[in-house]
Every structure is written in C-alpha cells, then in structure tokens.
Amino acid sequence: MTQSSKQTPLPAGYRLAEYTIVRQLSVGGFSVVYLALDDEDRKFAIKEYLPRNLAERNVNDEVTVPLELDRDAFNLGLKCFFEEGRVLSGISHPTVVRVSNFFRANHTVYMVMEYADGRSLGKELELAGGKMPERQIRKWFAALLSGLREVHSQRLLHLDIKPANIYLRRNGVPLLLDFGAARQTLSRNAKHFAAMYTPGFAAPEQYEKDQPLGPWTDIYAIGACLYVCMGGATPPGARERGERDRLVPASQAFRHQYSRELTELCDRCLALPPNDRPATVLEVQKCLQQTEYSSPERPAAGEGNRLVGWIRGLTGGRHGKGTE
C-alpha cells in the first residue's frame, strides 16, 4: 500500500513515552506500525492510530483532523482503537498478539505490542511454492483458532484475517495480528472507508451497514485463508460473488491434493449466507484437529493428461519449471 503524505511516520530516534522509535514496520488505512525499543532495549511493535482519510501529522508530530466534519468519525475510531487495546491487554494466549501497554500522546492513541521474529503466512506460502501440506495447514489453523476463540469470548472480532495478518514465529507457532475494531467502525459509518476491507477475505456482511457481524464473519476469512493455503488464488470479492459466483469450490478444485473433510470445511466457511457457515470457531477447530481423515481422490484415467493440456493451452504451450 502506498503511504499517504498525511501518514508521515514518526522519525527514527523519536521518544514516545518510555520507547524510542527505530523504524516504520508497516502502514495501513488507519494506522502506522513502528519497531521501537524500551529503556531496557527490548523490542516492541507500536501501532499508532492515524486514519489517512481523516487525519494528518503536523510539524510538531501531532495528529490533527483538518476538517471539523471528520471530527466525530475520528473520535469514534479513536474510542474503538483504545477499547481494542484494553481488551487485547487482558488476553494472554500464544497465538494472539500480546498488548502490554496503550496510552495517549500526540492527540492520538498508541498500542504497544510484542515484537515477534518470523514471517507472515503470505511470505511462507510464497517460499513454499503457493501451497502447504494438509498436515501443516491443520496444525497452524487449529492453533490459531484456539486464540481466536479467546478473542471472541471477549466480544471482540478480528475482521481482517488474511495471510498477511497471520505471522509465523521462528518456532512455528502462528500469531494473529492487526485486529480491526477501529477500521471496521469507520468503514461501516462512511462509504469512503470501504476500501479498507481486504477483497476476497472480507465477508459479505462487512459491506452492509444493516447486517450483523459476529464470529461467522471471521469464519468466512478463515475459509478464504484455507483456500489460498491449498493453492488457490484469493477468492473473488464477496460482492462480486453475490452477483455471479465464479469461485470454484475447494471440494472440486483441490480434491486430488487434500482430504474431502478439509475441502468441504473450506467451502462451508466460504458460504455467502452466514447461516450456511459453521456456527462457531470451535466447530471449525474440531474439524481441523481430526487425526483421521480421508485420502485425496485419485484422478480418473486420463484426467491428469486433460489437466496438463488445459494448462498448456492457457500458457500457449510454454514450458517452465514449477514448484510443488
């Protein structure tokens, strides 16, 4: 994402309470995240509330709202951001990012989180050639959903689960990052924030103000992540699917590589009507924790040759070295 000039990051060396900014880690539609050190040289990630469509930074490094008409929306997002930090600070789970501090400064709010060494699931997929073994998918997502259950028990939703927000520590334990209470609140109160959703991972109800959100909303995103981890492209956006659903079901696309139980679970999670999805995160987790499941279907005679021919037709007969 291209950074707006309004989201000018705090400079390296800037003192923020008892922390020193080292560098910017990332920027999103409503926040900037920094790597910082405390006075004992421990690393932290600090998220700054700075919605690019509402606010900007002045020469004194303060966050200001240029248009008074945007003041109420900014304050609402600020309140939700602060509440999100308060709730997360009370959750101690190995797969949920830990919030150790949150405070006000520069006319905005900062959330201090653990800094974990590792890489995103998106990067891991890229290095793995675009798909993961079923055993690994089940292990990572079952662990992740354990943390998500804890989050939901605190009446907090994530609302932006995607491979870029699933981090894999060096020890292999997944970590759920970048919760979106403030982003979601702004998105549902102003049309120009709709782009803050992640197309393909956002559930249909996230685009509608009158549709309730709940655990089923995060379950849709989990389904989209499972689809991508099995080798699929990011699913079409929910609105596009609602008009004409071109998504090839996982149970059809990946039946030769993954078990029927996993592909059918993915399809249920990606159901457009919320009532057709698994009722709870626990239900999804239990499916993933099954130790006995069917083997992938074997291709029918000649089916593999037809598939190769179809792929060659799409690529004009070019040959290249692929990865498994």
Rank of each mutant, 00 (worst) to 15 (best):
V87W: 03
G85A: 12
K139L: 11
N171S: 14
K79R: 13
V63P: 01
P278M: 09
A194F: 01
L16D: 07
S187A: 15
H158D: 07
T280W: 12
L168W: 00
L282C: 01
L307S: 05
G242E: 15
T64W: 05
L121G: 05
A164C: 00
E126T: 04
T315K: 04
C225F: 01
R277T: 08
T20H: 03
K321N: 01
Y227F: 14
V22S: 13
F193T: 00
V65P: 10
V109A: 13
Q206V: 09
L175P: 02
P273H: 09
E324W: 05
G90P: 03
L50W: 04
E205Q: 11
D210S: 15
Q184R: 07
R183D: 02
V308A: 14
L25R: 01
A301T: 11
Y49D: 08
P236M: 09
E134S: 07
P11E: 12
Y293S: 04
E150I: 09
L25N: 03
M132N: 02
K191H: 02
N171Y: 08
R104Y: 08
L125C: 09
M1P: 09
L69H: 10
S100L: 10
Q3P: 02
K162R: 11
K47R: 15
K123H: 11
A45F: 12
K191L: 06
T64R: 09
N305G: 01
G231L: 10
E292P: 00
C287I: 00
D160H: 04
I219R: 03
T315V: 12
Q290I: 00
K139A: 11
R260E: 13
L247Q: 04
A181H: 00
N189Q: 12
A279H: 10
L247Y: 01
E114Y: 08
G237R: 02
G28S: 14
D210K: 15
L314M: 13
V32R: 02
T64Y: 02
R298K: 12
W140G: 00
G316M: 12
F201N: 03
A17Y: 06
N75G: 00
A224Q: 03
V308S: 09
Q7V: 02
G320S: 11
P204Q: 11
R169C: 03
R119E: 15
I161F: 01
N53L: 15
H158F: 07
C80L: 12
T8S: 13
Q290K: 13
S187C: 13
M196L: 13
L54R: 08
S295K: 13
D72Q: 15
S89V: 06
E283R: 09
T323S: 08
G237E: 05
E83M: 10
Y207C: 04
G231Q: 08
R241I: 06
M111F: 03
L176G: 03
N189D: 08
L25W: 02
C229P: 04
P94W: 12
F201H: 04
E150R: 14
C287A: 11
T2F: 10
A17P: 00
A143C: 02
G317V: 03
E114G: 14
R42H: 12
I311T: 07
F201R: 02
E208W: 12
